[in-house]
């Protein structure tokens, strides 16, 4: 344990203490929500009017809400909505954003300039405001909000992809496959894309965290999921009225959101540090001696 604590990216390893902790939290959160039907002790929508506002007990781990529904089970099933929604948002943005970024970065020219101008404007607006506009036009609902956020996340991802493609474009391997007469699609997706993937994946993972927060906000405002289905944001909104008498009902989904997003951010930060060696801290003289990598100089 003591040794693990000392490992803070100084040795160029990914397996640092924060990384392991974050990964463990994420595994637990995802596993419990994916297997919610097997883990949840109650049906999340089952009313039990004899058991309203029950305090936490072995039977109801986190108590019950105003209609006697088990909060623990609702957290598990609510997490399914929130997390699957966040993944869907990111999937949509990847399907549209990555090809757009690849083509813009590879071809350049006027189309690229126009695209950059438009994305620059879109990116300067907060995603939630754009989501409000979307919902105002097309109506509210979970699927619509997911679709809207997916589209709203596209410019950011396209921009990230484009910026890496620009660094790859003039490399020798691209020249080589061009000289071999490969088709553009093959060059872009089979040769350039794999080299861009690490940075894209970092951005995408970060976007999952952002999507969780944005989805929760939309549901909290009543623009997302519709009852009886619930996600963490909507549960927070439900529990808000009973904050003083039954704080767990609002705090539990809130804590889940924060823990998940913090874990994602730490996870990404550690990977980013690992991929970017200039941010790694070099081992100190003492550490090198200890590991026997250099001999201790006399008199030092």
């Amino acid at each position: 344990m003591k040794r693990m604590k000392r490992k803070t990216n100084s040795e160029g390893t990914l397996w640092t203490f924060p990384f392991i902790l974050a990964a463990a939290v994420l595994v637990i959160v995802f596993a419990t929500t994916i297997f919610a039907p097997f883990i949840a002790p109650w049906d999340p929508n089952q009313l039990d009017l004899r058991q309203i506002f029950a305090s936490p007990s072995p039977e109801h781990l986190l108590g019950t809400d105003k209609t006697g529904r088990d909060i623990f089970s609702r957290i598990l099933f609510g997490g399914r909505m929130t997390l699957s929604g966040a993944f869907a948002v990111v999937a949509i943005s990847m399907i549209l954003g990555i090809p757009a970024g690849l083509f813009a970065g590879y071809y350049g020219g006027k189309a690229d300039k126009v695209m950059m101008w438009v994305t620059n404007i879109i990116v300067s607006f907060p995603p939630l405001l754009l989501a409000f506009v979307f919902v105002a036009v097309f109506g509210s609902g979970f699927e619509k909000v997911v679709l809207a956020l997916g589209v709203i996340y596209v410019p950011m991802l396209a921009r990230t992809t484009r910026s890496i493609v620009l660094t790859q474009r003039n490399q020798t391997y691209v020249e080589a496959v061009e000289a071999m007469g490969y088709g553009t699609g093959k060059i872009l997706f089979k040769h350039i894309l794999p080299n861009c993937m690490p940075t894209i994946l970092v951005q995408v993972t970060l976007d999952i965290g952002n999507a969780i927060l944005d989805l929760a906000a939309m549901s909290f405002l009543g623009l997302g999921v519709k009852p009886p289905v619930s996600d963490w944001g909507a549960m927070l909104e439900d529990g808000r009225v009973y904050l003083l008498t039954q704080p767990l009902q609002a705090l539990a989904p809130g804590i889940m959101i924060v823990v998940t997003v913090v874990a994602i951010n730490v996870f990404v930060e550690e990977i980013r540090k690992y991929l970017n060696p200039s941010e790694r801290r070099l081992p100190t003289y003492r550490q090198l001696v200890k590991r026997g990598l250099i001999a201790e100089e006399a008199g030092r």
Binding site: F220, G233, L243, A250, L251, G254, I257, V261, V262, N265
Partner: peptide, 21 residues
């Protein structure tokens, strides 16, 4: 700052309302 970035503004407000009351 890492934790504050992950707390949605509405949750932070709720916690403040809770603490204040």
């Amino acid at each position: 700052s890492l934790v504050l970035a992950a707390i949605p503004p509405f949750l932070l407000s709720l916690l403040m309302v809770f603490a204040l009351s």
